[in-house]
Structure formats: C-alpha cells, structure tokens
Design a protein around this nucleic acid. Structure first.
Length: 679
RNA sequence: GGCGAGGUAGCUCAGCCGGUUAGAGCGCAGCACUCAUAAUGCUGAGGUCGGGAGUUCAAGUCUCCCCCUCGCUACCA
C-alpha cells in the first residue's frame, strides 16, 4: 500500500440551513468521514469540505416567521450544525456557507461562462403568485383540493391521497400557504440552463465509471426521457444571489448549492496558501474530486453539476458516490414513534462512537437503504466493541501493568499469528477504499475473535500461577496487546476516539495504516483505563422518549404551517338545489382502524342505519382509531365511490381544520341516530 | 402505472462467473473458564434461501410469471 500520495478533495452534501442534523444525515457524514480518515491514514492528502446550504424560499419564510433576518437564521443554524458535526468527530477541513462571498463570485463566474457560451436561455413563464405577499409561490407553498379526488389540503404538485399529479393552477380552491390568499397567475421571465446541450458529454461522463452502476441505470432512463431545460432563476423576494445584470432575478438555490463545494474549498485555500485552487478545480486538474450524496439528489450531481462544470470550463468530478436512506427499526423515521432523532438528541444520551461503528457495520458501496435497528444496535456494539475488541486490551493489560511494569516482551512470541493480522491490512484497505465498510468490519471482527481465541488457548491467568512461566505470561499478553493495536489501527477511520485513547494507553504516536505491519516490542505502555463502556438500554429508551413528539409536529421542511389562523374566504354563492344534491347523514363509527402502508388514512366502518360503509379518511394525524369507535359523526353518503390505493372509499366524513393534529370531525348533538339526513 | 433495489436461520447480514451435507455475527440452549467492562472459549439447536413454473447432469445463484417490502418517478427536479 505504499502508493504515491494522492491529492483527494472530498465533499458531503450540504445540509439545508433550515433544520437540525438528524440520524439520517449522519449516515452520509459518517460514511464520508470514514473514507477521508482512511485516506489520510494512508498518507494521502485528503481534504474534506462542506458547507451549509443557506438559500431559498423556505429559509426566507422561516426567518420571517421567527422575526429575524435570513442571515441571522443561517448564522444560528450554522453554529448548531458545526457543533453537531464536531461532536460526531466529522473531520471537515473546512465548513463554510453558500451565503458567502466566495460562493457569490464562483456562481457569477460559472453563470457568466455558461451565458457567454450560449447555454442560458430566457423565457417567460406563468406561475402562481401570491398577491398579498407579492411573491411567486413554489408548488409546495400552494394548498388546495385535489382536482382528481377532491382531497382537501393538498400541495400544489401532487395529491397525497390519490397520488394524482398536476400543475398548481389545477388545484381547486387553491390558497397560498403563506398568506391564505387566492393565488393568481402571473408571468415572469425566467432563466434556463440548457442541459440538453450537454447530452453527449454527459452520456460519455456517466459511462466513465464516475457513478455506481445503479445510478448509471437510472441515468440511462433520464437520457431516454430527454434532458429538459433547467429553470435556474427565481424572482424577488428571494434569499439568494441576484443574477448579474438581471435586477430582481435570483439564482435558484440548487444552482449555487453545489458551487458551495468549490466555495468552501476556495475559502480553505485562502488560509492555506500553498493550495492552488486552479490545480484542483481547473479543467485539466489531475487531482481527485469525490462527492458523497444521498441517492435522492443524484440528478443534481450527475447531470446538472457535471454539465455546469464542463460548460464553464471547470473539471468534472472523479466520482459521485450515492448512498441509501436510513430507516429506524425498519420504518421511516417518525416523530410520533420517537425515531426522528436529531444529532443533538442522540448526543445527549449516547456515545457517538456507537453510531459510527454501527453505520460502518452496515454500510456497503451500494445505494441500498440501511436500517438502524435499536435492539441490534445495542447488541452489536456491546458484543463487538466492548466484548471483543476492547476486551482484548482489558484482559492483557492487567498482567503487563502489574507484573512487568508495563513492559512488553522484546520479541513477538507468535509471529505467525501476528503476520496474519498484519497481512490483513491490504485486503481491509481495499475494502475501505471501495467503501465496503460492512465487509471490512466483518473481517476486523473475525480477527478480534482470533485474538480472543489465542488468549484463551494460552491462558495467561493459569501460567501466572506457575513458577518459572513469567516470560510466557509476558509473551502471551504482549502478543494480545499487539493484536489489539493492529485491530485499533484498522478501526481507526471508524473510531477515531477509541484509537486516540488507545494510542494514549499504548503510549505510541498516532497510528498510521502501515503501522499494522510491525509489532510493538520492548516498549512500555500506560495503565489501562476502560476504553469504551457498554450501551445501556435505558439510554436508548430515554433518547427515543425524548424524541417522541406528542404535541404539534414542528414544521421542519417546506411550507410553514402558518395557515392555522387564516380563514378561507367565503366561496361563491350556490342555490339551495346545489346544496340539496349533497346527501349528508348521521353515521356511527362502528369500527376504525389503521391502514397498513398509509401515512394519513384511517379506515372507518360507518353505520348509516340501512347499511354500513367503508370510508377512508385522512385523519390519522389527529385521531387514534380507538377514540373514534362508537362515536357519531356526519358523512356524505352520495359521493361517488373512490378507488384508493388501499381500497374503495364509499363516501367521506366531514372534518375541519388546517391538518396535522389540528383536525376535528363533526359530532351531532345527543339524540341523533345513524341514517338521519342532515338538511 | 413505469423504473430501480430488495425478500436467505429469532435479529442484522455474506453468498463472485450456477457445482460437494447453504454461511457469519448477534440472540438462544448446554458445557468450560474466571485474566477481562457478567467479558471469553467450546458444543449445539435453528433455514423446503418469498411462491410457482422452466432451462440444466446440477439453481438462493439463470429465464418467465405471481406475491410482498422499500425507494424514485408519473412530463418535476
């Protein structure tokens, strides 16, 4: 493994400055960090940069909601993010912000170059506009009734009840989620990036082993669909960078976000003058550039981003590495289940090393999702790390410290076994290099088993009681500690803190990968202190409990739930006959149950006197099934049955409220009976 | 609906180009040991490899159909 030092620039995706880092984010940062630390241990120059993604409508609105400036918001979030990452030992060389002078300059440069080369087009488009807020509305900020199934409170792009997709303008009774006003259509000139100009280049690039095969497949699909122009401008008011010579037009947040990688590196160069920005980002750069991202943003990183770079005379990435999503206990992270766990909530209860190890033990180089099974997490960490690895040091150190003054033997008593351990550094290195961490961990733990078997076979505690066996005891324990040292070397990218404390214990310089090749002999170590304690079930439970949200879920992304106090305007007048067409009845909820796979639905069985109806109602967020059973409510009985994903809904129950927890179904006064018509 | 990934022991996962009685770790049971953070070692139980059909001398491993899970997507990036 004595290759020439490589120059490697590595990035993780930029977290959005609108929310906290959570366990899902950390999959990526831990994955990247392990890779970077591994490269550094190999003696390569690996520079790891990241930044907060600070622009866009959600940030602007969130700041307004809190009554602060966007700058203040992103400043605060930036501090929070940095602290979270630092505590998880994510070893960024530089952590910057997309709202920075470097990013502005680079975004402008790239834009100018693309524009001069004719890759920017201008076109007037129609968009929904909030006349009160005086701003254009992104799809997610328009709510209304689904044009297909009539479900209320749907976003402007798609219906979460029936799955229909549509333009925001098709939404019925649409309102701005920001002001509650009815959006109007308004024209505006937008700027587009002609992605199609780069099809040939992109086809070549994506075939060149710059992406995983799964992503390459996906790209083929996108090529077949055809590459569309990309809308890269947004109208004021917008928190971002104004487009040069285009007053009132701003770069779309996704335009300057990846440029943030460059900006962060540029900022780093300014304090590290021996680094030449152009040598890393220039068109003919020989250095390596890697982006670690989630599979959800592959489109941006494997199409837009290389095209933008290529079109503006910068280098393209060496590779883009995608990973899957995180599930907790086999399900999507959920606030009500307490599995939506922020980095900070985790840190308040558990050691970050546990999570780093567990993720490593599950991460491969594919794009499969990984599951954090909390029960498995506890057992795995305890038995592997505490029971196997740390135990090796623990069971040997006592003898060496007490009987031999901390002195290791002059020779390696079992060179064959040590060589087995040392020789593993090459295959394990290859696994780290290829991001096959789970495989690497398996190999390392297999070695740990061998080490324990060795100690068990030689039984120093028995020898210690026999006169004349002093040398053997020292030898066996010295071998054990040497094996431990090799294991720690291999685990160091994953567990830097454990490595550091072990280096202190072993009284050695920071371990490099090649140190695994040679043994420590005739060397004095320090007293052993427990290097890692067990995961306590109580702590996991406490973390989950603390993360469980019983109250109103906080608006974490997208549209703020600021509509609660907004009263919809009165709809247009109708005749009595129009109303009479709607057949409303008193119904008794005889059964209410969860719908497997549905996020928002409850399945209700309603007695309307003459028959029972099966109705799916989007009220799961507000009601538990058991609270509904037996109650009377009001339903529309002559609504066309609707085939839904989970079955046919034969009517609808009436409810009011903005959604989420704030949803209330109607109850008649005492005395009403199922089947009675409401008129 | 389309596409992608997946469905292998209780749990988490390996199984490359098809080839002997299907593996690992954890968990479980028994035994041993007591140096070690009740850690470790040995032994064992436990799987018709989602279901069905096919190709083959031979199929978790290839083909087709079906079922289930997850994700993306549905003119949106």
């Amino acid at each position: 493994m004595s290759n020439d030092p490589r120059q490697i620039l590595v990035t993780s995706a930029l977290p959005y400055a609108n929310g906290s880092i959570h366990l899902g984010h950390l999959v990526e940062y831990i994955q990247t960090d392990i890779w970077v630390r591994y490269q550094r241990m190999q003696g390569h120059e690996a520079i790891y940069v990241c930044a907060d993604d600070a622009h866009g409508t959600p940030i602007m609105l969130r700041a307004q909601q809190e009554g602060i400036t966007p700058e203040a918001l992103i400043e605060r979030t930036g501090h929070e993010h940095r602290a979270d990452f630092a505590d998880f030992q994510i070893a960024f060389d530089n952590y910057h912000s997309t709202h920075s002078p470097e990013n502005r300059a680079l975004a402008e440069t790239i834009y100018h170059r693309l524009n001069e080369a004719g890759h920017i087009h201008r076109r007037t488009i129609k968009q929904a506009y909030d006349p009160i807020k005086e701003m254009f509305l992104p799809d997610r900020f328009i709510k209304g009734e689904c044009p297909r199934c009539g479900a209320a409170d749907q976003y402007g792009d798609s219906c979460e009840v029936c799955g229909a997709t549509y333009a925001p303008t098709e939404l019925k009774n649409a309102v701005s989620a920001i002001s509650g006003a009815t959006p109007i259509e308004k024209e505006s000139e937008h700027y587009f990036f002609a992605l199609g100009d780069f099809e040939a280049m992109l086809r070549k690039w994506t075939r060149g082993e710059h992406t995983q095969s799964e992503i390459a497949n996906k790209l083929d699909e996108w090529f077949e669909t055809g590459l569309q122009d990309w809308d890269i401008s947004r109208d004021a008011p917008y928190f971002g960078f104004e487009i040069p010579d285009a007053p009132g037009k701003y770069f779309y947040v996704w335009l300057d976000a990846p440029i943030g990688y460059m900006a962060s590196f540029k900022h780093y160069c300014d304090t590290h003058p021996w680094l030449d920005f152009d040598a890393w980002w220039g068109k003919d750069s020989k250095h390596e550039l890697y982006h670690f991202i989630g599979k959800d943003i592959a489109y941006f990183h494997t199409l837009f981003w290389p095209a933008m770079l290529h079109g503006s005379d910068f280098r393209t990435p060496t590779a883009v590495f995608c990973h899957g999503f995180l599930t907790v206990n086999g399900q999507k992270m959920s606030k009500s289940r307490g599995t939506f766990i922020t980095a900070r909530a985790y840190l308040q209860h558990l050691n970050p090393a546990y999570l780093r190890y567990y993720y490593a033990a599950k991460l491969g180089n594919g794009i499969e999702d990984i599951d954090l099974n909390l029960e498995d997490f506890l057992q795995r960490v305890n038995s592997d790390l505490v029971g196997k690895v740390v135990n090796i040091a623990s069971r040997c150190a006592g003898f060496i410290n007490k009987k031999y003054d901390g002195r290791l033997s002059d020779t390696v008593a079992d060179p064959g076994l040590f060589d087995t351990f040392a020789a593993a550094r090459e295959p394990i290195a290859a696994l780290f290099e290829n991001r096959e961490y789970s495989h690497a961990v398996r190999e390392i733990m297999a070695l740990a088993d061998q080490a324990n078997q060795y100690i068990d076979a030689h039984k120093p505690w028995v020898l210690a009681k026999q006169a004349g066996k002093e040398q053997e005891v020292q030898d066996v324990c010295s071998v054990g500690l040497n094996l431990f040292r090799v294991l720690v070397t291999y685990l160091k990218p994953i567990l830097p803190m454990l490595a550091e404390e072990s280096e202190q214990f072993l009284n050695i310089e920071p371990l490099r990968w090649e140190d695994a090749a040679t043994a420590l002999t005739a060397h004095t170590i320090n007293t052993f202190k427990p290097l890692m304690t067990r995961v306590e079930k109580d702590h996991i439970d406490a973390m989950v409990e603390a993360s469980r949200e019983n109250l109103q879920p906080a608006p974490d992304t997208g549209a703020p739930a600021a509509t609660a106090c907004n009263i919809e305007p009165v709809a247009e007048m109708i005749e009595f006959d129009d109303f009479a067409r709607v057949d409303l009845r008193i119904a008794r909820i005889v059964k209410a149950e969860h719908v497997k796979g549905a996020d928002k639905l409850l399945q209700l069985t309603l007695d309307i006197g003459t028959e029972t109806r099966n109705v799916f109602a989007g009220i799961k967020s507000a009601y538990a099934p058991e609270d509904l059973e037996g109650k009377l409510t009001v339903m529309v009985v002559n609504l066309q049955p609707r085939k839904m994903r989970f079955g046919v809904s034969e009517g609808m129950v009436l409810a009011a409220g903005p959604g989420g927890k704030d949803l209330w179904i109607l109850h008649p006064d005492d005395g009403a009976e199922p089947g009675m018509r409401i008129k």
